Computed example of a mutant assay.
Amino acid sequence: MIKLRAKAYVGFLATAFATAGFLTAGAGTATAATLQNTLQGTYYGTQWLTPHQQCINEENARNKQTYGSEDGGDNQYFYCALGDRNIAYNLWWRHYV
């Protein structure tokens, strides 16, 4: 739960930076980079796993595969949040576009 709260706080801060017009330098020109949340899946659980456990397992696997760490990297990461009528968990991807 602490990990989820920390990621939500980081997501909030990232949104603030994106809203403020965060710029990155590229090939001599400034290019606007925006953080975006993209829905990756919804988990309702299995006979052996709760929806939260199922989502967290997928979150950790995707962060490790994509960023080399279960925590993600450089303000980009996969995270879980309550979804459908608070009975499911959604997996979201926070990334630059």
Rank of each mutant, 00 (worst) to 15 (best):
E58P: 14
H95V: 02
N57K: 14
Q47D: 02
E70P: 08
T38S: 07
T46N: 05
L91W: 09
A27G: 05
T50L: 05
A88L: 06
T34Q: 05
Y44M: 05
T31C: 02
A16G: 09
C55F: 04
Y77Q: 04
T38W: 06
E58F: 14
T24N: 13
L82S: 10
T15G: 08
L13V: 01
Q36S: 06
E70N: 12
T38E: 02
G41D: 02
T42N: 14
R5K: 04
Y67K: 06
S69K: 12
R62L: 08
T34H: 08
F78I: 03
A16C: 04
L49E: 03
K64Y: 13
E70L: 05
D84G: 05
N60C: 01
A61M: 09
Q54I: 11
W93L: 15
T66I: 06
A81G: 07
A32K: 15
A61Y: 15
F17E: 04
F12V: 06
Y89S: 07
E59F: 12
A27K: 14
T38Q: 10
W93C: 07
F12I: 04
A18C: 10
L49P: 11
T38D: 02
Y96K: 13
L13I: 03
L49H: 14
G21L: 04
Q54P: 10
N90T: 10
A30L: 04
N90Y: 15
V97D: 08
Q36L: 14
Y89L: 02
Y79H: 03
T15A: 09
Y96M: 08
E70Y: 13
G28R: 10
Y43N: 05
Y79R: 05
R94A: 07
G72H: 13
V97S: 07
T66V: 06
N60A: 01
G41V: 13
K3H: 11
W48N: 07
N75V: 10
W48M: 08
G45Y: 03
A16I: 05
S69V: 10
W48P: 01
C55M: 06
N90W: 12
T34E: 12
L91D: 02
H95K: 13
I87F: 12
T19M: 09
G11R: 10
D84V: 09
F22H: 11
H52L: 03
A61Q: 11
Q54W: 12
N37F: 00
I2P: 01
W93R: 08
N37Y: 05
A18M: 08
I2A: 00
F17V: 14
N90D: 14
K7N: 02
L91K: 13
A88D: 01
L4I: 04
G28V: 12
T24A: 05
L4D: 01
Y9K: 11
A6R: 15
A20S: 03
Q40S: 08
A18G: 06
G26T: 01
T15I: 03
G26Y: 03
Q54F: 15
Q54L: 11
A14S: 09
